[in-house]
């Protein structure tokens, strides 16, 4: 089945996500410290860093799964705050892929995919199913449409989760450690899907430990530690000429194995 997709064109000069001096605390614990970040249209940003560095928290602030206390985040010019209308708009533009897939186990794969288009965006069932099948084909899993999530392998579940996110045609995709919960032999199939998305020009912010992926497709790699951005650079410089000691240590630890 052919379907026209609006190919997003890469235009780094046009900012789609902006974090301006964002600060966040959990109680007394300062998790995000003066985060400043601009992501351009179609840009692929990979966020790396040790666990507890605040990288997941940061991207979860972008679609307001977490609230922040100071600063400002905007998506496509819309401020992410407690305003319900803004929130609805932001969430229609942004979707997220989680570490633990978070598919809805009581719904079949297909029902998982058509849920948001039908209930949030008011599409007809026929239209929603067509879109869903298109994306299931795209992640090579169309034959599993009527199965339930728990009947699939981890890799398959994560591909379904990506398809589910794509179904509402978001302009921006956030990936929160999408491969960390997978068995090693399944990481490849998920990364392949992510790479093909990147090549299509979707704006992506990925928190991941897959440095191969970062090298291959990232426009920019960001290193976070202790709640702040320590270093950012193009992949080449990031991996081969790290400046800060903390990044050097981090790279040694993850690349030595």
């Amino acid at each position: 089945m052919e379907k026209k997709i609006i190919e997003s064109t890469k235009d780094l000069s046009q900012t789609v996500i902006e974090l301006d001096n964002v600060n966040k605390w959990y109680g007394d614990f300062h998790v995000l410290k003066d985060i400043n970040l601009k992501v351009g249209k179609g840009e692929i940003v990979v966020v790396a860093g040790p666990s507890g560095s605040g990288k997941s928290t940061m991207i979860r602030c972008i679609n307001r799964l977490e609230e922040y206390q100071e600063g400002k985040i905007s998506v496509d010019g819309i401020t992410v705050n407690s305003d319900i209308k803004n929130l609805r708009q932001v969430r229609s533009k942004v979707d997220m892929v989680f570490q633990h897939f978070n598919l809805f186990p009581h719904l079949s794969v297909l029902d998982n995919l058509i849920l948001a288009p039908m209930h949030v965006y008011g599409r007809s069932k026929k239209e929603a199913v067509e879109t869903a099948m298109y994306y299931l084909n795209k992640v090579n899993i169309a034959e599993q449409a009527n199965k339930y999530p728990n009947q699939l392998s981890g890799g398959q579940q994560q591909r379904v989760a990506i398809a589910r996110a794509l179904c509402k045609s978001p302009e921006i995709m956030l990936f929160d450690e999408p491969t960390s919960a997978l068995d090693p032999e399944m990481i490849g199939e998920v990364l392949d899907v992510m790479i093909s998305l990147a090549e299509e020009g979707k704006t992506m912010v990925c928190v991941t430990h897959e440095m191969g992926f970062a090298r291959k497709v990232a426009d920019r790699v960001i290193f976070m530690d202790a709640g702040q951005i320590v270093e950012e650079n193009d992949p080449e410089t990031f991996f081969h000429h790290p400046e800060s000691d903390r990044l050097k240590l981090f790279l040694e630890q993850i690349l030595d194995h």
Partner: peptide, 11 residues
């Protein structure tokens, strides 16, 4: 009216 759109105000 925009005030009514705020999550916290609604709460």
């Amino acid at each position: 009216m925009t005030l009514l759109r705020d999550e916290k105000v609604r709460g």
